[in-house]
Design a protein around this nucleic acid. Structure first.
Lengths: 193, 193, 193, 193
DNA sequence: GATGAATGAGCGTTCATTCAT
DNA sequence: TATGAATGAACGCTCATTCAT
C-alpha cells in the first residue's frame, strides 16, 4: 500500500486542518469525549500525522486555550490604553471577539480547566476599570466592586453561551442590555479613563 | 485480605461511604477524571463492592444529579406556594441549599452535562416570577425579562462558585448583594404573589 | 435485618429446589450462560445457601451429568439382561427415558462435555447388540457395524432433540421410524439375545 | 517490547494469523473458554492488535460462522443446479467440505448457537431433494421424508465428528456407507433432477 | 511529509466463591 | 439452616502514543 507524502500535501495545511477539526470537536464534545482518532478522521489524515504537528492531545488543547487567552488579553490591553473608551464598549468588544470565535470561546471559556483563571483575570480587569468609575455609577456606591465584577462576569458567561453564541442577539445588543441592567442611570456617560 | 464479609461490616454504611467518596471525587475532579478505582480506594473497599450498591459509574453520577435536581425543584416549588414570599428570599434559600450541599452543587451545577437543563429550568422559574412583578421593578420595564433572568442565572452561578462555596460570603449576604445590583430601588417591597 | 434459618425452611427442600432450578437453567441456557446468581434467584435463596449444598458450580453440573449417565446405563443394563428383548424396544425405552427427563437429557446429551463419552459408550452398546444380530439384518451384512452404530447414535441424538423433546412424536413412534429406516425387512423379528 | 510497528510486520498477515489462532482455539475449547488473551498469545501480538482487525470477540465468532454457512450453501446451491447430480455425490461433497475445513466445521456445526439454524436448513434441503425422489427409494415410500432427513442429518453430524474429522474414513467412503444404510437397493440410480 | 502497524497502561465490569453473623 | 457483605481474579475493550517504512 502506498505510503509517504501525499501528492499535493503540505505540512502547514495539514496542521491547520487538524487544528480546526480539533477546535470543532473539542468545543462540541469536550476534551475527554474527543479522541485523537476522531480528530484525525475528521481531518482525513492518520494518527501519526497528528504527532507530527502536536506534542500530545493535552498540549494541543493547552495551545488552543493559550491562544484564546492571548487574544482576549490583547484586546483588553489595547482598549484600556485608549483613553476615553467606554466600559460598555469594552464589554461589547469582548463579546464581539466571542461572537467571531465561537468555537474557541466554547473551549476557552467553558470546556477548559484554564477557564477558571481566565475568568478570574477578567474579573480583576473589571475591578480595575470600575475602581476608577465609582462616582459615575450609583450602583457601585452601594455595592462592593468585587461582587459587581463577579456578578458581571457570570452574566457575560451565561449570556454569551445562551444568546450570543446561539446567534440570538448581537454583541452590541447584549452589551447594551448588560449595561442597562448593571449601570442604569448614567450608562452612556461612563468612560474608561 | 481474606475474602468474604468484613468484621462489623454493614451494607448501608458501605453504600453511604461510597456515595460520599464519589461525591467528593466527582465534585473535585469531574466525571472523567474520577475512576471507580479512586472511589473504592477512598472508601477502602474493592471494586466489586462498588457494583454491589451501584449499577455503574454512569448511573451513580446520574443519580447524584437526579437528587440535586429534585432537591432544587422541591425547594423552589415549596416556596412558590407560599404567598408573600419575596423573590430575594427565594434566591437566598436557593443559595442556602447550595451552601449546605457544596459538593453536590459542584456536580449538579458545574460538572454535569445535565446542568444545562437545570439552569434552563431555573431561568424559566425566574421568568415566571418576574413576570408577575413587572410593575415593582423599574429595571424590568426597560429590560427584557428573559435577559434579566439569564443574567441573574449567570450571576448566581458565578457568585456561588467563587464566593458562596468558598465560604467568603453567606447566602443571605449574597442574596442581598444580588438584589441590590439587579433591583435597586424597591427591592424590599417586592413580593411573590 | 433478619438472618439465620427461615421459618418452615428445610435443608433437603432447598437443595432439591436449587437442583431443579439449576437443571432448568443449565438445560435452556447452557453452562456458561447460567450464573449461580440466576440459579439462586430462581430458587429464592441466597448465594451462600448454594454452597451449603453444592461444592461448586462445576461440581453440581458434574453431578447432574453423573446422574444422567447412571440412569441411562442402568436402563440399558437392565434391558440387556432380559432375554428376548428386541433392539427396537431397547431404543424405545431409551427414548422413553429421554422423553421423561427432557431437561436432564438436554444437559447430559447436548450441553455437557461429558456427552462425548456418553455417546461413545452408547455406540459401544449398540455395537455389542448388533454384533449378535448380523444374520438378522441384511443391512448389517453389507455395512460395517461400527458405522451403523455411529449413524444410529447420530439419528437418535438429532431426532430426540427435534422431534421427541419438542413433543412432536412419541418414543414409540420414533423407535419404529428408526427401525424402519435402519433395519427394513426383518425389523419385527430381531431379538436381543 | 517496544511500542509501535514491528519489523517486517504486515497487517494482512497479522489478521490472518489471529483468525487462524481464533479458529483453532474456538474449535477446540469453545466460545466461552476461549479468551481474547489466549488468541493474541497464540498469535504473539497484544490485545489491542486484536481490535485493530476485529470488532469484538463476538463479532469474530459470528463472522466465522457466517463464512461457514456461506461456504456450505454455496456448495449446495452449486450442486443442485447441476442436472443429474446424484444425492450421494451431494453428500460426499458436503463431507468433502467438512474434511477440508475441519476446524471451521467444528465451530459452525457444533460449537455455535447458529449451528441449529444451519442444520435446520440442511434438513430442508435434504427434504427438497428427497421429495423429487420418492419413487426411486423404497425406503421413502414407507418413511416420512421429514424423519429420514432429520435422521440423515444426525448421522452426518455424528459421523463427521467421529470418523471424518478424525481422519478415520474419507468423505467418499462415508457417503457410500450412509447411502448403503439409508437407500439400500437403488442407491446408484438416484439422480437429482 | 505521511502512513501502516503495533503496544503500554489502564478502565469498567462480572462472577464464582467465602467470611462473619 | 440461612443470610448479609465482601473479595480475588479475571475479562473484554479503549485510547494515547510510537516504531518501521
Amino acid at each position: 500500500m502506498a505510503r509517504g507524502r501525499k501528492v499535493n500535501s503540505n505540512g502547514e495545511k495539514s496542521k491547520q486542518l487538524l487544528r480546526e477539526k480539533a477546535i470543532e470537536l473539542f468545543s462540541t464534545n469536550g476534551y475527554y469525549q474527543t479522541k485523537i482518532s476522531d480528530i484525525v478522521k475528521a481531518a482525513k489524515v492518520t494518527q501519526p500525522t497528528f504527532y507530527l504537528y502536536f506534542e500530545s492531545k493535552d498540549s494541543l488543547f493547552h495551545d488552543l486555550n493559550e491562544q484564546f487567552q492571548q487574544d482576549l488579553f490583547h484586546i483588553l490591553e489595547e482598549q484600556l490604553q485608549q483613553q476615553g473608551m467606554q466600559f460598555q464598549k469594552v464589554i461589547e468588544n469582548l463579546l464581539q471577539y466571542f461572537a467571531s470565535n465561537p468555537l474557541l470561546t466554547k473551549i476557552g471559556l467553558y470546556q477548559s480547566e484554564a477557564s477558571y483563571t481566565v475568568k478570574e483575570k477578567l474579573v480583576e480587569k473589571f475591578e480595575q476599570i470600575l475602581d476608577g468609575q465609582v462616582e459615575n455609577y450609583h450602583n457601585l456606591q452601594r455595592n462592593d466592586i468585587h461582587i459587581v465584577s463577579q456578578s458581571l462576569m457570570g452574566s457575560i458567561e451565561r449570556i454569551t453561551d445562551t444568546l450570543l453564541l446561539t446567534n440570538r442577539k448581537s454583541a452590541k445588543e447584549l452589551a447594551e442590555d448588560l449595561f442597562s441592567i448593571y449601570f442604569v442611570e448614567e450608562a452612556e456617560s461612563v468612560v474608561v479613563s
